[in-house]
Amino acid sequence: MRRIGDAPATRAILITLATLLTTLFLVVPLASIFYQAFAEGLAPFWHNLSDQYTRQAIMLTLLIALVTVPVNLVFGVFLAWLVTRFSFPGRRLLQTFIDIPFAVSPVVAGLLYLLLYGRTGWLGSLLSEADVQLMFAWPGMVLVTIFVTCPFVARELIPLMQAQGSADEEAAVTLGAGGWTLFRRVTLPKIRWALVYGVILTNARAIGEYGAVAMVSGTIRGETVTLPLQVELLYQDYNTVGAFTSAALLAAIAVVTLVVKGVLEWHTQRRGKRHA
């Protein structure tokens, strides 16, 4: 029996089509970012990169990622461990709640935080009495980024940990392992690669997040402008090379992320085969 796609002509057409579309929709735009950034040579690129505001935008972006990733790493592991290793009422509900940040548009997320923590918000009015500036300052931007990126680690871990089951942990407990030892010596080695993968995704999103951060930023130049916001500001300033320089930086991070992700997947597959 012949299946669709067995004919050499069909195969060739399908492959050409897929390659063409991928090139057209993904590769060309990405390449054009770098082309535009270097359109006027290397000097303007460096000049834009060393611009004070761009530098501060890079710093703030890194700061946000630096806080967000560890917080969500701990949170994600804890949550995944909780829902896969223990059985308690509301477990499924909790699993659904994890997905809220994925389901909600980032702009809405930013707005919710603004309404809650802004000057007129429930908690915001208390904060402003205590002279704490959360929104329109970097702590608020960190907060919304944590919200937007919090499912990544948990989402990577939960399916894996469910598939692995808790037999190993149960054995360890009968052998007298305490909670921390159990986690460190038994659970962690089994989920290591998924964890790294979750961290990479969290990091990529924390660096690239626009919508939620834009809502609570107030776009104070040199203070609350992250790289994605800087791209838009520079573009509106008619500074095309500057905008594409910052965009190229973000794209470079994306490419590095993809490469690391590829290497990890390759690594896990090879390990999987060796074990099988």
Binding site: G118, T120, G124, M135, F136, G218, T219, R221, L233
Partner: peptide, 20 residues
Amino acid sequence: IQMSHAGSSTQARAILQGLD
């Protein structure tokens, strides 16, 4: 002097919400 730029309606909203 720190500058914040956006559409002026956006700015007014932000100030109402606590942009200092």
